[in-house]
Design a protein around this nucleic acid. Structure first.
Length: 89
DNA sequence: CCCCTGACACTTA
DNA sequence: ATAAGTGCCAGGG
């Protein structure tokens, strides 16, 4: 990871951190916003390995709109629960 | 540099 | 609608 806010990782975290409350973005969207529309795989990989508290990873869902995975409280279920509370669902 | 892993997306059956 | 297979990318050892 670079000191100057670089690397797909930092970029993705930044993008996800900018997701408005009550909204959800697909991994593909995040990857695209991060600069690599085909790196949705890497996005999930980064999130699972680097769970940054400043990054609302729970707002990132699959292209179908399903929650997908989550390494936080309650796992996928908790993720959906949070989205429901925020009004995303 | 090579190998493995992974919270996905898309197509076809 | 569900299942299975394939392709993609980046991070970490």
């Amino acid at each position: 990871m670079q000191l100057r806010t670089s690397s797909f990782k930092s970029r993705v975290l930044g993008v996800v951190a900018e997701i408005p409350k009550g909204e959800t973005r697909t991994y593909k969207q995040v990857a695209a916003l991060a600069g690599s529309p085909n790196a949705y795989r890497a996005v999930g990989n980064i999130m699972s390995k680097n769970n940054n508290p400043k990054v609302p990873c729970h707002r990132v869902v699959k292209s179908d709109g399903t929650a997908g995975g989550y390494s936080g409280r309650g796992g996928r279920a908790g993720k959906v629960n949070i989205l429901k509370k925020e009004g995303a669902i």
